[in-house]
Simulated scan of single mutants.
Amino acid sequence: MQVSIVLQGKGAEVVTVKPRDQVAAVLAVLAEHHIGAVIVSADGQRIDGICSERDIVRALAGHGAAVLDATVDSLMTTRVVTCQPDTTVEELMATMTDHRIRHVPVVVEGSLAGVVSIGDVVKDRIAALEHETQVLHDYIANPF
C-alpha cells in the first residue's frame, strides 16, 4: 500500500505554525488538535521545520521554562525527513525506524500534501492484518 492511500483514509489536513510563533502557543496547538508534532511553515506549503513534543521537552530540560517564551524556530528540527505519495507503507515504516521519528510530512513537488504519523501506519497495518485473517478464515471455512 502507498502513502497516498493512507492519506485518503485520514485526510490531507495539515496543522502548521509559523517559525516566529512562541513555543507556548505551539503547545496549545498540539493540545487543541491532539497531535504530537506540528509542521513549521511560513507559508503553509514549504516546510521550514517540524516541532514535536519531544523537541519541546528536550528544550525544557535543557533551558527551563524560559523556552515557552522562545520562538519555535529556535528549537524545531530543520532537517525534516519527508516522503512522497507513492512511497510504500513498508518503506515509510523503515524510514521511521531508521530515523527514530514518528511524523513524516508528505511532499508533492516541494509542497506540503499531508503528514503521516506512526499511529496512521499502525492503523493501516492492523487493518491489513485483519483483512488477511478474514480471507484465510473464509478460505478455511469454504475452500471451494
Rank of each mutant, 00 (worst) to 15 (best):
V40M: 13
S4F: 04
L136G: 05
D55L: 02
E32Y: 03
I47F: 09
G62N: 11
I140H: 09
A94M: 13
D43N: 14
A12C: 08
D86E: 13
Q45A: 14
S111H: 06
A141E: 11
P19I: 06
V116F: 08
A65M: 12
Y139T: 11
K123F: 07
H34Q: 14
G44R: 07
V104P: 04
V80L: 11
T82N: 01
D86H: 15
R125Y: 03
H137M: 02
S74M: 01
S4D: 07
A61W: 03
D138V: 00
E13S: 09
R58S: 06
V67C: 08
V72C: 02
T133N: 15
V121K: 10
Q22V: 03
I56Y: 03
T133C: 03
P19H: 12
V3D: 04
R46C: 09
R102N: 05
G11V: 01
L92V: 05
I39A: 02
A113T: 07
V89Y: 04
Q45I: 13
E32F: 06
I39W: 04
D55N: 15
Q134C: 00
H33T: 01
I47G: 10
L136N: 02
V57M: 10
G11F: 02
G114F: 11
D98W: 11
P85I: 08
I118N: 01
V116G: 06
K18N: 12
L75I: 15
E53I: 03
V26L: 04
P143R: 09
D120P: 07
A24M: 07
G49E: 06
C51N: 09
V108S: 00
G49C: 12
V38E: 10
H99E: 14
A127L: 12
I56P: 09
P143T: 11
V106D: 11
V72A: 06
Q84L: 02
A113Q: 01
Q84V: 03
G49I: 06
S74D: 06
H131E: 15
A128D: 14
V108A: 03
E132A: 15
A128Y: 15
K123L: 04
V29T: 13
V81E: 09
H63G: 08
D138C: 03
V135F: 04
V108R: 01
V6G: 00
E32T: 03
G114Y: 01
M76D: 14
V14H: 03
P85A: 05
S117F: 08
T88E: 10
H137V: 00
K18L: 12
V38A: 15
R46M: 08
L112Q: 10
D73W: 05
A28C: 04
D69C: 01
V17R: 08
V89P: 00
I50V: 15
V81P: 06
